[in-house]
């Protein structure tokens, strides 16, 4: 079973630069054109299943706006390496 991850994008910090959109290896991020942040940007959001929690988006993000989570099965002996 593929690793399940997800991201949370902080509205206060995201400036809609879209660097995460082009960096995501799973192609599951887009700018949300239906919403504006309080600062007036279209924020990044997940658009599909398939996030693996690889944190590539968070590493390229110039505003530390992305928090990345990953499910860790309790039975596995070794937790997946962090990014």
């Amino acid at each position: 079973m593929p690793v399940k991850g997800w991201i949370e994008v902080d509205d206060m910090h995201c400036k809609g630069c879209a660097l995460c959109v082009s960096a995501c290896p799973q192609d599951v991020i887009a700018l949300n054109m239906d919403r504006l942040t309080p600062k007036g940007y279209h924020p990044a959001h997940l658009i599909d299943e398939g996030c693996t929690g690889c944190a590539v988006c968070a590493i390229i993000c110039p505003d530390a706006a992305i928090t990345v989570f990953r499910e860790v099965p309790v039975h596995s002996k070794k937790a997946p390496e962090s990014a």
């Binding site: 206060m12 110039p62 928090t67 990345v68 989570f69 499910e71 860790v72 099965p73 937790a79």
Partner: peptide, 26 residues
């Protein structure tokens, strides 16, 4: 068993909560 949730990446402690004035993508 329910899988545990691990935080893989978050804002560093050495950052304040302020949003920077830098242009988007800088």
């Amino acid at each position: 068993a329910k899988p545990e949730v691990k935080v893989v990446f978050q804002r560093p402690e050495s950052f304040t909560d302020l949003t920077t004035h830098y242009c988007p993508g800088c």
